[in-house]
């Protein structure tokens, strides 16, 4: 049994139906889905018991009604486990994971900037990439924000104060 299968079995055994669609897409790539309730528990288990000690990044994506967050974590720099979870677009809130992975703070700021997801418990969610006078409530990476809208904001030079 390869290392990937071992990890997959362990997660299945531990979390059962709470982790859905767990697949080995190709050697060294595992994808899984879960509910935001269980996310932290899975990450803690992955870090403490399975040895996933490096977080590569957090990807955010606008799915229409919901925002999908993908946590890419790595085991010995080789096996990438991508755990997907979704938050509602109306009220995008999720608990921070900086207590598990300190470098996640900067990735959470990025997702907060571009998709407007609130990471509860992250002490510093100030703008990282966007200008300080960027209009509130416009999250450029959401699908409903068009290029024209972004262009108009830039030409205006941000929000007037």
């Amino acid at each position: 049994m390869s290392r990937e299968e071992e990890i997959l079995e362990k997660i299945k055994e531990r979390f059962g139906d709470n982790v859905k669609n767990i697949t080995i897409q190709r050697p060294r790539r595992i994808f899984a889905e879960t509910d935001m309730k269980y996310l932290k528990e899975i990450l803690r288990c992955a870090r403490d018991e399975l040895g996933f000690d490096h977080i590569s990044t957090i990807t955010g994506e606008d799915m229409g009604e919901e925002i999908e967050l993908i946590y890419h974590i790595a085991y010995e720099n080789a096996i990438e486990l991508s755990i997907k979870t979704r938050v509602p677009k109306e009220d995008p809130k999720i608990a921070t994971i900086i207590d598990l992975y300190p470098p996640a703070g900067i990735y959470e700021r990025e997702v907060h900037d571009l998709l407007g997801v609130m990471f509860e418990g992250n002490p510093d969610l100030s703008p990282l990439l966007l200008p300080d006078n960027w209009p509130k409530g416009v999250y450029p990476l959401r699908k409903d924000v068009s290029l024209e809208e972004i262009k108009a904001i830039i030409e205006k030079g941000g929000e007037e104060e």
Partner: peptide, 13 residues
């Protein structure tokens, strides 16, 4: 590092 979006304006304040 800053690839994602839009040119920033200098923060004078």
């Amino acid at each position: 590092m800053d690839r994602v979006l839009i040119i920033d304006k200098e923060k004078r304040k």
